[in-house]
Amino acid sequence: MKKVFRYQIVYLLLAGLFVLAVFMNINTGNVNISFGRILRIIFCGAESGAAEYNIIWKIRLPRLLSAAILGGALALSGFLLQTFFRNPIAGPFVLGISSGAKMFLAVTMIFLLRYIPSMPMWAQVAAAFIGSVLSLLYVLLFAGKVKSMSTLLVIGIMISYICSAVTDLCITFANDSDIANLTYWAMGSFSGSSWSTVRLSAVIVFPAALAAFLFAKPIGAYLLGEGYAKSMGIPIKFFRVCIITLSSILSACVTALAGPISFVGIAVPHITRMMMKTAKPGVIMPAIFLGGSVFCMFCDLAARTVFSPSELSIGTVTAVFGAPVVIWLMLSRKNSV
């Protein structure tokens, strides 16, 4: 019973932080708008047409929502990859999946923009998805051969370098306007978010996350290892394909819409597990999603306020908080590395 109490506390805490993050994100910015006015603008639709109205409705709200949705997606995708590889430091960024998505997206963007003026957003997501699946297949090819988690990590980083090299090569031969577009995007940021970003990410992320939650039971059994999972009646091949597809969809969506964002996928699931003191997927998966949302919203807040008016890339902020977690994880399990 003590355990259930702990779960409830953590969920309440996360919900509280979520509300706080929403509140702070909407209330902070280069233009100072009083809180009462914000409430009036949002709930009463007051001052329609005014600059403040546009700032709230067209900039702050979509940005906030996409940070929340994509942050949750990123954390969940990291959790799925950690389950799949039985490796606590697996994540879309360290395994080179984000870089693969980025490369494929850059290539398609450069070649496609010659024929059409702008690339539709869904096509960006599709390109990123193909890219992440391709680099994931590469990782899988090696993962079968290496058992040690640090080796897998090194392979992921190498794949990530190769992809970056190819991306740079493409940029060298691209038009100036494309470059501006690409470098900005490659930094990773929620600043370009519009309502269509929110809509598209909601349409992709929510069903994928729901599907992932429905796998909570087999994921739990999979924690014991493949042999045991199979003996309990899990169709192992089908399960593995589903997990890998879901995590690719989630991370590809993030990469396409906000650029590569590092370490959220590793740090958030671990912090959540530590807070809950359990690894039962049914309990922690929703918390991980919520935690990812909160984490990304606060990071985005930091990205746009710390050195305001200039903005940091979101990856810079997440790395500052996320990388120490990875180091700590590596050190705390000397034996199994």
């Binding site: 014991l224 290892g225 045991y228 597990r273 690894a279």
Partner: peptide
């Protein structure tokens, strides 16, 4: 079954 493979879990 009870297998020889080592079960590595955390927080279970």
């Amino acid at each position: 079954v009870v297998l020889t493979e080592r079960v590595n879990t955390e927080l279970l």
